[in-house]
Nucleic acid binder design. Structure first.
Lengths: 136, 136
DNA sequence: ACCATGTTGACTAAATTGGTCAACTATCAG
DNA sequence: CTGATAGTTGACCAATTTAGTCAACATGGT
């Protein structure tokens, strides 16, 4: 599954926020970017889109930052990727029979992938992560 | 499922050859390109890669052309896409725990997609096509 | 009032994509 | 033999996308 750097950064940033306690003060850009070595100036753009999609909220001012807009349990990877790449624009059905048959298979493949991404929430990933650290 | 123009042309060209009778003389580039409106000069490059991958054979000379290297039943869409894009290069496991968790999901999604493409053969697509024309 | 933070849009360098072109080689028909 | 028709190869190019930077501004806690 191909993933642009932008999309990957977005997922990592969301996961970074997801693993923080919701009671803590909002995470600063530097704190989000640090662990994954995301260029800070670039992350700014990404967070802006995530905010536009309603996935995160920002707090301005001297002790501001970002936090998830809803519980990690209710945000899927699909939500994040759609926020970054935009929703997949529907392709018009081609008239050529060969192209139609091909498109049908592509849609099957897309659906299989979509299902996996929709079932994976930020919380399930963070939980999986915590489980791994447990055995160390 | 994102598909480059090159990859789509490759699939359409393979399907065009698959639906011809194996007894017929090889298909000329013009005949392959025609129905799908593929730029001929571009198709040349694509066929060359398909040949390099062992999926088609070429016949040179005045009445030459291209035909499948093995029965359509034994060529999957995955074979075609791998021939064009190259096999997916294995990504090194990242050290950051977050990135690891993310990669795991990506691999699941890739595998789901891969399975669909590997199960779909040129013959099954052509058969599906023939079935549709039957009811017309 | 200050200064650390977020907000926004313009900008750019590099990689990828989609495609063209020209020169060459092989082979069949006559 | 010879010429027309086909494939072979590699260089080339323009448009788009990607990845990232920068500068100028707005906001709000201390």
């Amino acid at each position: 599954m191909k993933l642009s750097a932008k999309a990957e950064y977005a997922c990592l940033a969301m996961l970074e926020m997801a693993r923080r306690n919701p009671e803590e003060p909002p995470a600063r850009i530097r704190e989000i970017a640090g662990p994954s070595h995301i260029p800070e100036r670039y992350l700014v753009q990404i967070l802006l889109r995530l905010k536009g999609a309603g996935l995160v909220q920002s707090v301005r001012g001297a002790s501001g930052g970002y936090h998830l807009a809803r519980p990690a349990q209710r945000i899927s990877l699909l939500d994040v990727l759609n926020a970054i790449d935009g929703p997949p624009e529907p392709m018009p059905d081609p008239t050529e029979p060969l192209a139609r048959a091909l498109l049908k298979v592509r849609r099957q493949a897309s659906e299989a992938e979509r299902k996996i991404l929709a079932e994976t929430t930020l919380e399930s990933l963070v939980a999986d992560l915590a489980a791994r650290e447990w055995v160390i």
